[in-house]
Amino acid sequence: MKIRTAGPADADEIVQVKNASWREAYAGIIPDEDLASLPDVPGERFVRSLSSPKPFTLNLVAERGQDVVGWAATGWYREEVGEDEVGPGSPGEVWAIYVHPDFQGRGIGYALMREAHRHLTETGLAPIRLWMLEGNESGSRFYERYGFVADGERSTFEFSGTAYPTVRYTLPKDRLVDELL
């Protein structure tokens, strides 16, 4: 397995990984018909973001052979900091992390998270936060094993006209990447 920076040529495979992961992780949370209607092609905005990444952001893919089997996206914590205000000392966020269900449980998610963590730490973005759909038990177990803590903040995520409750997780500032190796 190899972890590398994603580019626009990876967009189609990233969408397939994300969709398969959503259908697995959110079954029973999001209605099956909504999960079935996920778009199979990447949007122009997403492809542009892979072509010209903004400062402090990083998209990573995990490859097994020639196939993309995982994806992670990181940047600034959008709830508190605007794009024009971000800088070292701003909080960071793992915007997305997905591993295709056929490859879960093999350390791919951990490797992606470690590289996302490393990037955010090196750019000075801390603490690191993420939002997770409430009821995603496998996601909760994964984040907690990595060291994230549910910090009590709650919000909602709107998808297909429905608001779903979300829970925020924070990785303590003193959690160093090197202690994870």
Rank of each mutant, 00 (worst) to 15 (best):
T166N: 07
E144P: 06
P53L: 08
R78Y: 12
T5F: 12
R175V: 15
T123V: 12
F142N: 02
L60A: 04
S51N: 08
N59H: 13
R106P: 01
P53E: 03
R48F: 13
A111Y: 02
V99S: 03
E137V: 15
F142Q: 05
R23I: 09
S160L: 09
T162C: 11
V69A: 12
A6L: 10
T5Y: 02
P31V: 09
E115C: 06
G92D: 07
A62Q: 02
E115S: 12
Q104G: 00
F46K: 07
G82F: 00
P55C: 05
A73F: 12
G43Y: 01
V69E: 05
G82A: 01
T57D: 05
D32W: 04
K2W: 02
E79W: 03
T156L: 06
V17A: 12
S37D: 13
G75L: 04
Y110T: 04
R106M: 07
I3A: 13
E63A: 07
A72Y: 05
L120V: 00
Y110G: 00
N136Q: 13
E179D: 10
I14D: 08
V167Y: 08
F142M: 08
I97E: 05
D174S: 14
V15I: 15
W22N: 13
R4V: 15
D178F: 04
I128Q: 09
W95F: 14
A111N: 03
N19C: 09
W131Y: 10
H100K: 09
L60C: 03
P91R: 03
I3Q: 01
E80T: 14
A6G: 09
P88E: 03
F56K: 00
P88C: 04
D102E: 10
R129F: 10
A72G: 10
L112A: 02
L130R: 13
R45T: 15
V149Q: 09
M1F: 10
D12I: 11
D34T: 07
S52K: 14
M1R: 14
R48L: 11
F46Q: 08
T170H: 07
E44K: 13
I30Y: 13
E122D: 08
V69F: 05
V167G: 08
A150F: 06
S160G: 08
S90I: 03
L60H: 06
P31L: 08
R145M: 00
R4D: 10
Y169Q: 12
V149G: 09
P42S: 09
A11C: 05
G147E: 02
E33M: 07
A73H: 11
E80G: 04
Y169C: 10
W131G: 14
W76M: 01
S51A: 15
V17W: 13
F159E: 09
A62F: 02
L50I: 03
L58E: 04
G7S: 07
L180P: 09
L50G: 10
Q104A: 04
W22A: 11
V99K: 04
L176Q: 14
F56Y: 06
S52M: 06
E144L: 04
E93Y: 08
R129K: 15
G109A: 00
S155C: 06
K54D: 06
P8N: 12
D84T: 01
D174N: 15
G105Y: 01
V81S: 01
D12S: 13
